[in-house]
Amino acid sequence: MESTGLVLVALALGLAVGAGFMTLLHMAEHHGRRAAEVVNPAVPDGVDQVLDALETAGAVVDPSNNVIKASQAAVSMGLVWNRQLVHTELLDLIGQVRRSGEPISENLILSRGPFGDASMRVRVRLARLGTRYVLLLAEDRTEAFRLDEVRRDFVANISHELKTPIAAVGLLAEALNQAADEPLQVRRFATRLTTESGRLSRLTQEIIELSRLQAQDSLTEPEIVNVDAIVAAAVDQSRVTAEAAQVTIALGKKSRAEVSGDERLLVMAVHNLVANAVNYSGDGSRVGVGVRKNAGVVEISVTDQGVGIEEADLDRIFERFFRVDQARSRHTGGTGLGLAIVKHIVQIHGGDIRVWSQPGSGSTFTIRLPEAPYPAPAAIGDTP
């Protein structure tokens, strides 16, 4: 009987020890899994697919602020580098989300990448993802802000440019009324009034034209057009002004080049360059206009012997309302929109425009357009 009791006690102790050992094994396994999760955390189900589908930037951050998953856009924008968030501003917002548990939306100005000097405007939204993670979404709004600034500047510039001729027309009309009994004064004021109204009309027309060009990214119905005919028409529009200023316009030989595009717009672009060359050239000088084909590219060049352009201004001359010489431009009736119009016309034709200039020696503007794939045969009488 006593031996049986000893056996039962031994069995109970064995069971207790075994149970304790199994508990220890279970706890060790549990801690091992937790440690593995910390070292190699898993993204909650579905988040991988969501981030991969995002066009905007997205990232998931763990409690140690390690980025465990990021979309390609987040890397491209420079928000994530080496599995870490680059910007302390984002880490501060993540800390706020963890403390409050509430989503946060902010507009930030951040550097583009860990080593970049360029800045970007970003709209970010952060929220908790489960109990351990924080989800960061970011939208690059730099271009949207830039376009808003361009629109604001454009409206401000238009208001400024329109104010001058409108005020002049009002003053001249008042002067005409007061000088009704003086024929010489009436004729002088009427001439001035005609000049200012013409300037106002040109400015209005160019604003409308530029707005139309900016509203389209490509040509709707391009046709094969003869470049020599375009140049001839553009030069003819400037003949009277050139003769009045004693400026000679010299045309190069016929190129028989053709491009695909809108004839009216191309004539406008070349005419703007020729008119600028004439206006900024001195009396008795020469303006050269030539066309050449070069490896599938048609180049239309306009060269003057005018005042030239300083190197610091070369990057700005295609901006709206920018003038190299404010006084001369107003004297010649320039609106400051001509080169901006040229640039947009060339761009929607799939080309580009280049400029070379030497202060005191003159400038050369070159429009480069893709040549039409099947040039027309030479016409009888064309100069080779």
Rank of each mutant, 00 (worst) to 15 (best):
S119E: 15
L137E: 10
G113Y: 09
G95H: 10
D92Y: 11
I68E: 02
V86P: 07
M77T: 01
A57D: 06
S64C: 06
L51E: 04
N107W: 06
G130M: 05
A36E: 13
I104L: 15
A35C: 01
R83I: 02
E102D: 07
D117N: 15
S119F: 12
R141A: 08
L54I: 02
A57T: 08
L129M: 14
G32T: 12
R33V: 14
L15Y: 12
S119L: 15
E139V: 10
I94Y: 07
V60R: 03
A59D: 03
A16C: 12
H31N: 12
I94L: 11
T131Q: 11
Q72R: 14
G95V: 01
L25I: 15
P103D: 04
P103S: 12
D48M: 07
A42M: 08
V61G: 01
I104F: 10
V97P: 05
A36K: 08
G78P: 05
I94W: 08
A138K: 06
P44I: 04
Y133H: 15
L25A: 13
G32C: 04
R141Y: 03
I109D: 03
N82A: 09
H87D: 01
Y133I: 06
L108S: 04
E37L: 15
V17C: 05
F145Q: 14
I109N: 01
L135H: 00
G78W: 05
A36V: 03
R83M: 09
L24E: 06
R83F: 10
G46V: 02
G101W: 07
S64I: 06
T56N: 15
L110E: 06
V67K: 07
T88K: 14
V86T: 06
I104C: 07
L93N: 11
